[in-house]
Design a protein around this nucleic acid. Structure first.
Lengths: 348, 348
DNA sequence: ACCGGCCGTGGAATCGTTTACACGGCCGAT
DNA sequence: ATCGGCCGTGTAAACGATTCCACGGCCGGT
């Protein structure tokens, strides 16, 4: 593969001049400039990003560590992150932690070894020493979706409290009183916050949230299935199951279906995170939708602000309730029009 | 950030010795070895992968260019690719081409600039000069899922012909005669092959495949919707719509639903690529399932064979038909047991 | 006519590694 | 006692770019 030296030789100039042409440095004669460009073309030369990064101490690359690519929510997030980063001249390397702290650490470590310019993380746990240390030692970092308390890192996320409140109001209006939730891991903010918001909202309607109605999940489908089976085995099963993410809702659906129960007649179902398939399940699933693409964009902008020496601020955007049929027949007022697919491809 | 020089200074040895310790070179005294290890620990030193790559001419990184991360099939593929690569000591950088040749080129270019050791591609089109040139000039490369004819690059993919034949047999047995297909872009192998297989299988049953029953899609949901609407507007609409991927099936579902039609009574639906949600749509969707994870693993092994100087062979695995209810009530023989969710998390 | 400054250019240092080569010391074989 | 070889180590040259600095030529102002 041709190097800058080869280009210099062909163009009959020094490597310094070639470098200047490549970087649009003004003080190069137009004669030299054209000769260099011709040589670049002739050799099919492409600058070696590795060498460049070594010298400049920047990679123009961002790391993104997410918990699970198979989760459509995170896939969507990753896509918008890459899109915005590309628009701003950066590349993105995605690390899939698969909800495993050890894998998360693996990816953080290799990303740091590659000297990425900044790190976007949706932490799977409360923060390993590695990550806390990276944050402390000045690696530009931004949390997205989930975050870690007590670390001085900007957070870009959705606040679901109002939407959860709307959901509980919706359920209450439909006559449901025994509401259960499948929580995410307590070590994640989204795992505990959603339960907390649910409990608070229920409290406002004078409803208790007994421990038996809190299923412990891990944001994966299988845990949703297990938690739901446990609910259904109770002497007094809940009337509603609210899954804290879409994969656990899938598991819940599996469990309910394998018992031959019908939604919403036998049991109602709702989920956090909306995805296109929720429109087409039997029945369509009521869900809380996050402004996913917007979160990704905001996170990238915040991170790049930090990378380029500006100060970054945390961003919180509202989530909203999307009522469908899985909790019972909604009143006309609640569904003014048919709900469109939420993850419609943004024509970019 | 500490460099190898700092480690050498603290340990009281030369950088060469530090490097030898780091790379487990045998000829280092155990005394020096322990001093170096202590210094590494004390400084929290991590080798700079950029500098190392510059020197060694290898990055231990693979590039993966796929057409669409939002497509669960590709997300699944990406996950298994990363998993296998990690097991073999490589990292993966994913480029999402979004079915756009220009974006595909962008990612191929930046991956090559980063001097990745090998490239895994699921081409969006017939091959840009850039990609053909990369293949020609010896960049280790493997095609996965889709491929480009006339290029000497191993291909790892699923052969869906038998499964498509099974599907047509299934449809025929249910009494369907007017079968339509929503094709992918003709520039992709999967776009044209699936139509071809469908046509051949139909031919064996004496069924014609008129042009009006071939919808042109682009593997995205919106195109599936449009194609389906066109089918439904025909004087004699088809009895079955077969979508060549899962996203177009989603679009078809949208279109059918918005007309108030019922599946399978008014029209039947089937899809290429199986995903967990197909079990829970109304009704569950009959689909052709690929051995996605296995494809990813095989592709990585083939690519690494090439990277490390061994010869790689193409791999073709069979796809299989998964019968559900979306084409009509199957006979008992065809569904011996309830179909489980296909993308169940592989507990790794 | 002289001089200061700017412009285009090249030489060379540098980034953080790996590794070829040289070198001194020690051991065992003669 | 001598010598060849091995072992542990250090010195220095790469890898491919960017960039500081110096230098020669030319221009314009005095």
């Amino acid at each position: 593969m041709a190097s800058i030296k080869d280009v210099a030789a062909v163009a009959g100039v020094s490597v310094a001049t070639v470098s200047r042409v490549l970087n649009d440095h003004p003080s190069v004669s137009s004669d030299a400039r054209t000769r260099v460009r011709a040589a670049v073309e002739a050799l099919g030369y492409r600058p070696n990003a590795v060498a460049r990064s070594l010298r400049t101490h920047e990679t123009r690359t961002l790391g993104l560590v997410i918990s699970d690519v198979l989760n459509p929510y995170f896939a969507h997030l990753a896509r918008s992150v890459e899109e915005e980063a590309r628009a701003l001249g950066y590349s993105v390397i995605i690390g899939n932690a698969d909800e495993r702290p050890d894998l998360q650490d693996h990816h953080v470590r290799t990303l740091l070894d590659r000297r990425i310019d900044g790190l976007l993380v949706s932490p799977t746990d409360g923060g390993s020493p590695l990550m806390l240390n990276a944050a402390k030692t000045g690696t530009p970092m931004v949390f997205v979706d989930r975050w870690i308390a007590g670390v001085d890192v900007p957070v870009v996320r959705a606040d679901g409290r109002a939407a959860v409140h709307d959901l509980v109001a919706h359920l209450y209006a439909l006559g449901h009183r025994r509401l259960a939730i499948i929580a995410g891991p307590a070590a994640t903010t989204t795992g505990s916050e959603r339960v907390q918001a649910f409990r608070v909202a229920m409290g406002e309607y004078g409803l208790p949230l007994p421990d038996a109605y809190i299923g412990q999940g891990d944001f994966q489908a299988e845990s949703g299935r297990r938690a739901t089976e446990r609910f259904l085995d109770l002497a007094e099963p809940p009337e509603v199951v609210f899954a804290a993410d879409n994969l656990m809702a899938l598991g819940a659906l599996d469990a309910i279906r394998s018992r031959g129960l019908r939604i919403p007649d036998d049991i109602a179902l709702a989920a956090f995170d909306d995805i296109p398939w929720f429109v087409h399940t039997d029945p369509a699933i009521t869900a809380i939708a996050q402004p996913t693409a917007e979160l990704g964009r905001a996170a990238v902008r915040a991170l790049i602000d930090r990378v380029e020496g500006r100060t970054a601020r945390s961003v919180t955007l509202p989530a909203r309730l999307v009522v469908r049929r899985s909790c019972g027949e909604p009143s006309a007022a609640q569904t003014p029009t048919a709900q469109p697919s939420p993850l419609q491809r943004s024509t970019s």
